[in-house]
Design a protein around this nucleic acid. Structure first.
Lengths: 151, 151
DNA sequence: TTTACTGCAAAAGGTTTGCATGGGT
DNA sequence: ACCCATGCAAACCTTTTGCAGTAAA
């Protein structure tokens, strides 16, 4: 916690680029919440806190922050990309309710086995896996049953 | 093979909508190739064959064709969505080379076990899973090694 | 001092929509 | 005959980019 900034500073200087207050504001804001985020939402959160960071800067920095492995894309929905921070968070996948949007994060060791098998079988050097499981959560099923929907 | 159209006709009439030549042209073109596709590419393929279908019609029909379970979204890349046809194709996931874009389709039974476990554990009714595994393919690793890249 | 980074505004590119016409049922 | 679906073009929205000014290193 709090170490993201140090990590990013070292990443940025290794690349011969410059660190800026804007970049740190963006990263701090991303890590100030556990939730997944999108650009517009992040921009609004920053503005609400008095930051003067522009959307352009957010868009320009996201690829860099991804390259530093602090965040990653998770899914594209409602016409725009959604992200999550991963540093200090541990690898995980998502179980999502298609109706209410609830997201449950889970880790399954068998996925690493599958990864290893695939790497061997197809001669790939695996970088990562992304598993999305989609369905109806318990509450949504109960509501649907009560309302008589979805037979 | 060829049954997609029959399936779609029945789907469309069950919904009380109308079938049209444009819809059938789109579906036929989608199923005329095994590959993944995107809207622009599909539009160009149709035009090349003399079809007068508009992009608007493609965009308007894709949600319907997805609902009929003939196709699904696979990933968002290069600023737009990519799709694949799934009817008569069998469920599968993707192993993708991040460098050359090569796609290998695979099926892993353990994923269904994971699905089942998750459904029980979190009380979800699972509809589907989507696993993307990303890495470097054998050729790209060899090229990189030869060029001395990526240390 | 150099030149990468920023904010702003305009542009770009994918997707959606309004409208008048055409065509299933 | 009704009204859903189409083509066209404009609108919309997210993301990218050009530019002039600013500030890390």
């Amino acid at each position: 916690m709090g170490n993201e900034i140090a990590l990013f500073r070292s990443f940025i200087s290794k690349k011969g680029l410059r660190n800026t207050p804007e970049r740190e504001e963006i990263i701090k804001e991303i890590f100030s919440s556990h939730d997944h985020f999108d650009v517009d939402e992040l921009y609004l959160r920053l503005r609400q806190k008095g930051s003067r960071v522009s959307k352009a800067s957010i868009y320009r920095n996201i690829p860099l922050i991804m390259e530093s492995c602090l965040i990653r894309e998770v899914w594209h929905e409602d016409g725009h990309m959604h992200y999550e921070h991963i540093y200090g968070h541990g690898h995980h996948c998502h179980l999502r309710c298609i109706q209410c949007g609830k997201v449950i994060e889970f880790v399954d060791q068998d996925l690493f086995e599958i990864e290893k098998r695939l790497g061997t079988k197809y001669d790939f050097e695996i970088l990562e896996h992304r598993l999305d499981v989609i369905g109806y959560c318990s509450e949504c099923r109960q509501h649907a049953a009560a309302a008589g929907d979805r037979s």
